[in-house]
Design a protein around this nucleic acid. Structure first.
Length: 405
RNA sequence: GGGUCGUUGCCCGAGUGGUUAAUGGGGGCGGACUGUAAAUCCGCUGGCUACGCCUACGUUGGUUCGAAUCCAACACGGCCCA
């Protein structure tokens, strides 16, 4: 494929696939590069997000960052909140049916989403951002229209979609309403007159349906730009909240930094490519050093450089100096604890342990320290908060809490 | 609608009347090691201010001294037939 002109570096960085893709073609309907160069108006770049949870993570940030790259090139980011489709549940990549959400949940989620992408997108330049909700056109779809949509696809085409076929073959339930999802997402592209739709590689089918529907309704079909799925911190599965291998955009600087400084070695380069603007040719040889720079860069994007630097210092102190060194240790108020209190009970009350039973186990396992001293007896008792205030309670190497009144 | 099989702890999956908080694996957590990692080795992995008590094997009842294990109804799902 011909070299990508430098002004499109940001747009073409780290992508997985663009389709349709006729690299040699000058036809703006077959070659995104040609479209970008020939268009006399800002293109409409669609990114749909389903407000199905309240927290978004670095994996979600990738297409959002791409959206920003388009904004910076003068195009219009159309952030589509799938408030209506969220209530169906996208079956993509799911081995089972997703639960349906209530309207209130969806609305609350949508608001926090917008808040979380604020550091990434350009909210200020006029004409660069459009936030839309698909209930706007989906809520009142009449049956005739729905049947028209259903009529554009065959069952065979639907089943060609990997998730469906697999679930069906494995004898798992596939519900009819799930067939509607790709069609509705595609119809969103019709309603928004999207020129490009962004999505993870798992969205290829849905994006392609969007093209078909746009053509069906007499519009120019959109381009699909697919982005790699970010692997989670476990290095083996895609980042997702339910797998617990994620870094949330809302996390405090210290925990964000701590997680990122230990991304598996084989993922460091991908993380730099997808989450930063760093020139990949300049990465340090030493993986440890690279991890630190990555953590600093990404944490800085969400919390500012100063906070990121502080997080780095704290992370080092916490591990090397043990308790008490860092300034950013989260505090835990003893007001929620009844005295006299035994250590295991106290520990169970903090976020350090999931229960008092768990606390006993951790103590037995030799994981617990109070102000640097190992706790071995779960039954040692404290008569009043006074003897605890200011001290640092620790479970394992990285979980700390400073006790306060 | 009919027939048949299935439903176990975070997940998968043993267990078919009596040390059963329930074999095993995965995941998670902790310890050693290390690069604050990976790999490896070891331990833990329902709850309760707790040497005892409580809740757990889809739901609700039943049979039994005693059931996750037997029976019935219901719910949900798979497959086959219509």
């Amino acid at each position: 494929m011909p070299a990508i002109p430098r002004e499109f570096d940001g747009i073409y960085r780290g992508i997985s696939e663009v389709f349709p893709h006729q690299a040699e073609s000058k036809d703006p309907n077959e070659n995104l590069l040609a479209r970008l160069q020939q268009s006399d108006r800002p293109l409409r770049i669609k990114l749909g997000i389903d407000p199905t949870g309240s927290e978004i993570h670095l994996g979600h940030s990738i297409p959002v960052r791409k959206l920003r790259a388009f904004q910076d090139a003068g195009h219009t980011a159309v952030l589509l909140i799938g408030d209506f489709t969220a209530r169906i549940g996208d079956p993509t990549g799911k081995s089972e049916v997703r639960k349906q959400l209530t309207q209130a949940e969806v609305k609350a989620n949508a608001e926090t989403y917008i808040d979380q992408v604020r550091p990434i997108l350009d909210f200020d330049t006029p004409g660069r951002l459009e936030i839309r909700y698909n209930s706007e056109w989906l809520a009142d779809l009449d049956l005739g229209k729905i049947i028209e949509l259903l009529g554009t696809m065959t069952v065979g085409q639907m089943l060609a979609k990997e998730g469906f076929a697999k679930r069906y073959d494995q004898g798992n339930p596939v519900y009819l309403h799930e067939f509607l999802y790709p069609l509705l997402q595609g119809y969103d592209s019709v309603a928004l007159k999207a020129d490009v739709e962004l999505g993870g590689t798992d969205q290829k089918f849905n994006v392609a349906v969007g093209r078909d529907l746009q053509r069906h309704f007499g519009l120019t079909p959109q381009f699909g730009m697919l982005l790699p799925l970010l692997l989670g911190m476990d290095g083996s599965q895609k980042m997702s909240k339910s797998l617990g291998n994620y870094v949330g955009l809302k996390e405090d600087p210290l925990s964000m930094y701590s997680k990122l400084e230990k991304v598996p070695d084989n993922m460091i380069s991908d993380y730099f490519e997808l989450l930063t603007k760093r020139d990949l040719g300049t990465l340090p040889e030493n993986p440890r050093e690279a991890q630190k720079q990555l953590a600093l860069d990404v944490t800085g994007q969400y919390h500012g450089e100063a906070s990121a630097q502080q997080a780095q210092k704290d992370a080092i102190n916490l591990v090397q100096g043990g308790a008490g060194q860092a300034e950013a240790v989260p505090e835990f108020s003893l007001t929620a604890v009844n005295f006299p209190a035994k250590v295991f009970y106290l520990l169970g009350a903090t976020p350090l342990c999931s229960s008092s039973s768990d606390a006993r186990r951790q103590i037995k396992g030799g994981a617990v320290k109070l102000e640097g001293d190992k706790v071995t007896d779960p039954n040692v008792e404290f008569a009043s908060p006074d003897e605890l205030v200011g001290k640092v309670l620790q479970v394992g190497k990285k979980k700390f809490v400073r006790l306060v009144a």
